[in-house]
Amino acid sequence: MSELLVPFAYDYMIKAMVISALVGGVCAFLSAYLMLKGWSLMGDALAHAIVPGVAGAYILGLPFAAGAFLAGLLASLGMYLVNQVSRLREDAIIGLIFTSFFAFGLLLVSIYPTAVNVQTIIMGNVLAIPDDEALQVLIIAAVSLTILTLKWRDLMVVFFDENYARTVGLHPIRLKILFFTLLSACTVAALQTVGAFLVVAMVITPGATAYLLTDRFHILLLLSVAIGAATSFIGAYLSFFLNGATGGIIVVLQTVVFLAIFLFAPKHGLLQTRRAAAASIAEHEQTS
């Protein structure tokens, strides 16, 4: 029994668990929106696009978050502009922009093999996060969560029906910029916990899981955040026993939860859908 409490005896473990839970929660909040718009891969794209920013920041001795954030914004802006002026499909644009940013990042790292540990960017390492970076991550997550809590309804209307949002006096473009700014910021934060490769799971899976459980947006948000925070907390905790690879554990946990709910969800689960279909056929046969 006491063995299970051992992780709580270490400051670095508590720090890792709290940061992971916060980041997991805020990413899950964003995932509820991204998934609905079919923009899920946007998170992935951003995470990769951030790499040159992080590398550049290390080389110049700036806070990594600043560089990452700048790169993320540049990439979003790039995607938006190419989308406006070209007739390429969105997925092609996303692919184009993020691979070029990522390639540029790798190039930077290989030319200036400084203190940057590419491994850290790509795999994340929340267990060894320095205090100043931990603080950056905490601030990003806390500010994002506050803004989202205040503005979730406006964002919902914009994501549901952009035109209508305008007729009730909202500003869809401003709100979308706000959203993508938060997404860039949170992707930066998540980079530290799970790494660039797995950020995409953090900004898709919890929302997709919650979507199977409810037809109401605010409940979807709550469930999504709960799933994201809980799996991240538990993932960080388990990584103490499994020795490292926090990101991998978190994402595996999220996937397990998703699969369970995909099968057993009360209304939209696979089994229930089958059962309902069978019942309706049986009923039909009985009456005829």
């Binding site: 609905l36 406006d154 549901f160 029906d161 009730v168 909202l170 109401r216 947006f217 979807l220």
Partner: peptide, 20 residues
């Protein structure tokens, strides 16, 4: 123009009319 899979109920949509 409407995304019919969006997780909102009828009353939620009507409530959007009040946002302004």
């Amino acid at each position: 123009e409407v995304d019919w899979n969006f997780p909102v109920l009828v009353e939620d949509v009507v409530m959007m009319g009040r946002y302004g």
